[in-house]
Design a binder for these strands. Structure first.
Lengths: 103, 103
DNA sequence: CCAATACATTGCCATTCAGCTATATAGCCG
DNA sequence: CGGCTATATAGCTGAATGGCAATGTATTGG
């Protein structure tokens, strides 16, 4: 999960991940959306790939990127040890969940 | 929250934050726990301070560090838009919670 | 007052990294 | 095939960053 944090620590890469919350997108969408050059976007995508945060598939000319949520889930799990600091609401929820959907 | 991500992207800083999950600690504890020099630890603490992830208070000779959970809560909020990708369990929990503890 | 402890700050070095331009690769279309 | 589009790769540069040793600062204890 540390690789994911490292990858997310760049604002442009975080923006890419945010755009992918809506679904699959071709690389060109990020080039249009971000104020940086195409090769730089391509490099960011490569970093996100290596971190396991995104996956690609080919569609003719284009490369369609989609989110790979696993590292985010890991990050979420790490964060869970801190939720008690701000969220009694969630604590209650988890207690309930464990009863509702045991194991 | 981006400043927090940046700060957490270093493994030693993440280790410090992890240690603080248990409560307040003097700076020296991190020096003992990490395989890096005291000045380097001090620099990491300074970065965490600037990111708002930790707060300090003086206790005689020592500086007692504690977690400031606000940036982690922000990160948690950002992550929430992705939970649907891996956690139907949590979705169910939240639905329940909204009924149980409305608003 | 003096030595010791705990921590921060300074100054340096090597590495990493985001950015760019230029170029390569691959698929599409006429 | 030839040109166009979409993306990746290579090569470079400057800035940021983590590491260290040396030094500064403040507090405690004798």
């Amino acid at each position: 999960m540390h690789a994911a944090l490292q990858a997310l620590s760049d604002p442009h890469r975080m923006a890419i991940v945010s755009m992918l919350a809506d679904g699959e997108r071709p690389a060109g969408d990020f080039v249009d959306a971000l104020p940086i050059s195409q090769p730089t976007v391509s490099r960011h995508l490569s970093v996100l790939r290596e971190a396991g945060l995104v996956a690609v598939r080919k569609d003719a000319n284009r490369r369609l990127y989609r989110l790979n949520p696993a590292p985010l889930a890991e990050l979420d799990a790490w964060l869970s040890q801190y939720r008690r600091f701000w969220s009694n609401r969630l604590d209650a929820l988890e207690a309930h969940l464990d009863k509702e959907f045991p194991q």
